[in-house]
Design a protein around this nucleic acid. Sequence first.
RNA 1: GUCCCCAUCGUCUAGCCUGGUCUAGGACACGAGCUUUUCAAGCUUGCGACACCGGUUCAAAUCCGGUUGGGGACGCCA
Length: 434
Amino acid sequence: MKVRFAPSPTGFLHIGGARTCLFNWLYARAKGGSFILRIEDTDQSRSKKEYLDEILFSLAWLGLDWDELHYQSQRFDVYRGIAKKLLEEGRAYLAEDGSGAVIFRMPQKTAEIDDMIHGRITFDTGLIKDQVLIKSDQSPTYNFACVVDDAAMGITHIIRGDDHISNTPKQVVLYEALGYSLPRFAHIPMILGAGGGRMSKRAGATAISEYRSMGFLSEALVNYLMLLGWSPGNNQEIISLKDAVAKFDICDANKTAATFDMNKLLWLNSQYIKTCGAGKLTELIVPFLKDRNLIADNNFDGKFTGNVLQLFTERAQTLGELADAMKPFFVKDVEFDVHAKEKFLAQDLSGAFGTLKDRFAGMSDFSAAEIERVFRQVAEELGLTTKQLIHPLRAALSGKTVGPGMFELIAVLGRERTVERMERAIQLYKHRPV
RNA sequence: GUCCCCAUCGUCUAGCCUGGUCUAGGACACGAGCUUUUCAAGCUUGCGACACCGGUUCAAAUCCGGUUGGGGACGCCA
């Protein structure tokens, strides 16, 4: 059993391509077959090295490894040889315009396939015009190179998008003309954009690399892609690549097109962020913090970073969001949200802040529990409710109106920085506009 | 225009093949509540679908036909 994913390096790896690749990979791994990658770079002018690198990198990032790698650009002589044979047999002819193109004479018949997902599909090839095999620049066309290679490489199952159904009869007649036996076909449903049509940049991101840079974990993205057109059963939503291999069969794939739903992807991502473990999450977040210039390249406080991370792990849906939320802990001066500033300046609390700050400064055990004890004690002494003090304090320390629990936040921020920021807040109170 | 594919909550789906166990299950989203120092998270709970019409059958989400709707393909792109 052998399958392939055949991307064209004329663009980035997108959601649809990644899902097609995933289903091929899953099927190969589930059945103990092999999975090959074939780069369809026959269009010399549109193929770019940068796209190729991006595709290879994205596939590796997703965890989809291949057993063989082929390039169609290195096989032009093979296609030409086979086209020549077809020419000699009279199944193809030279273009009359003298351009050198080789054109296949379309037979009039009923082509039929037994699709693993759709069942029997029949086509009347009499409705299809003669097909170009070799273009005037002597490069092969897609349908021709595809058939030649699938046969040459021993592909047994062709798993590809629904949009290729109409290419199938053109390929079937070529298989027959060349005396090759037909592989099995499995046409999986397409992934539609939020609007209902094809996914496009307008309807949201399409490139896998964009999801990576937004801070999606590859496991979450792969998990989401699996759920589009397939279900592991038992109402299971969270599933690893490894577990999916044990349950996957291409026959169980759906027939119906699926609409891409960012909300569910975000939810899955947040689940993976919460459960992937502190060690792995730290590793993942570091590049995002560096990107934002919040930590230095090779010199930063790992323990502190881990502590801050823990504060926000439950609250973020992407690594990007997580890194943004962590920002107040890595900058010298707090930046205030508009609302935070309003809330914070509403009432002069410089007196209370002063008292609290001094008590914090005198603490030896600066743990969340101790901070809470001291805080509540001070509030009571001053005749203030905890709410009256907590919200302005959060604004003063983080610049935000929302965030982690106050005491955990203070403990992580540390005594020194807490005191420093409270002193700055007291100054702000003194100079606030009336 | 021609050909092809598809049709269960707003979205992803389970069920369909092998009709009865389906007053159709789960997840996301949304609403309410609990918890609470805010926001999340978590827990409880609500809302919400078999596109339509016919046929077969004692019985249809499940089988058949049609209608409508949606998607795709018709390149010397892949």
